[in-house]
Amino acid sequence: MTIAGGIVLIMIGAIFTWAIEFNLAGLDINVLGVILMIGGLVWLMFALYRMNVARRTLASNTTVVTEDPVTHQRIYEERRYDDPPVV
């Protein structure tokens, strides 16, 4: 699922709605175009959401604070997780 897939569905829906004047028995091309545009918009929003979540996951830092039992000093470890998100 990519952003381009959503845009392509929106374009095909717009073509069906405004550019094609063809009648089929039992099928309204204009309604089909509107349905495709709404589906493309939903697809586009979902793709943007997934991209945002992946970006946020890749940039996460974790700071771990532990205490050494012998010297009683605090040890600060900063970890950066660069693994790709699990889908």
Rank of each mutant, 00 (worst) to 15 (best):
9 L>Y: 03
41 L>R: 01
5 G>H: 06
83 D>H: 13
43 W>F: 12
68 D>Q: 09
27 L>K: 11
49 Y>H: 14
68 D>E: 09
3 I>V: 13
80 R>D: 04
86 V>P: 00
35 I>N: 05
59 A>W: 07
7 I>F: 06
39 G>D: 02
52 N>I: 11
25 A>W: 14
63 T>H: 03
49 Y>W: 15
10 I>V: 10
87 V>T: 07
73 Q>F: 01
71 T>L: 08
34 V>N: 00
26 G>Y: 11
75 I>D: 05
18 W>C: 05
17 T>M: 03
84 P>E: 10
38 I>N: 00
5 G>L: 03
80 R>N: 08
72 H>R: 13
65 V>R: 09
39 G>R: 04
60 S>W: 02
3 I>L: 06
83 D>L: 15
41 L>H: 03
33 G>Q: 01
39 G>K: 05
31 V>G: 03
4 A>Q: 06
39 G>P: 07
59 A>C: 07
69 P>H: 14
50 R>K: 14
55 R>P: 05
47 A>P: 12
19 A>R: 10
40 G>H: 09
55 R>T: 10
72 H>F: 08
50 R>C: 09
31 V>K: 06
26 G>H: 11
20 I>P: 09
34 V>R: 01
24 L>K: 13
36 L>F: 14
80 R>K: 15
77 E>Q: 13
55 R>H: 14
87 V>I: 07
52 N>S: 14
20 I>H: 08
12 I>G: 06
51 M>F: 15
1 M>C: 05
86 V>I: 10
23 N>T: 15
79 R>P: 01
16 F>Y: 08
71 T>D: 09
71 T>N: 11
24 L>C: 10
78 E>D: 10
12 I>L: 07
18 W>Q: 11
5 G>D: 04
23 N>K: 15
34 V>F: 01
54 A>R: 10
5 G>M: 05
32 L>H: 00
12 I>M: 08
25 A>Q: 12
18 W>L: 11
82 D>S: 10
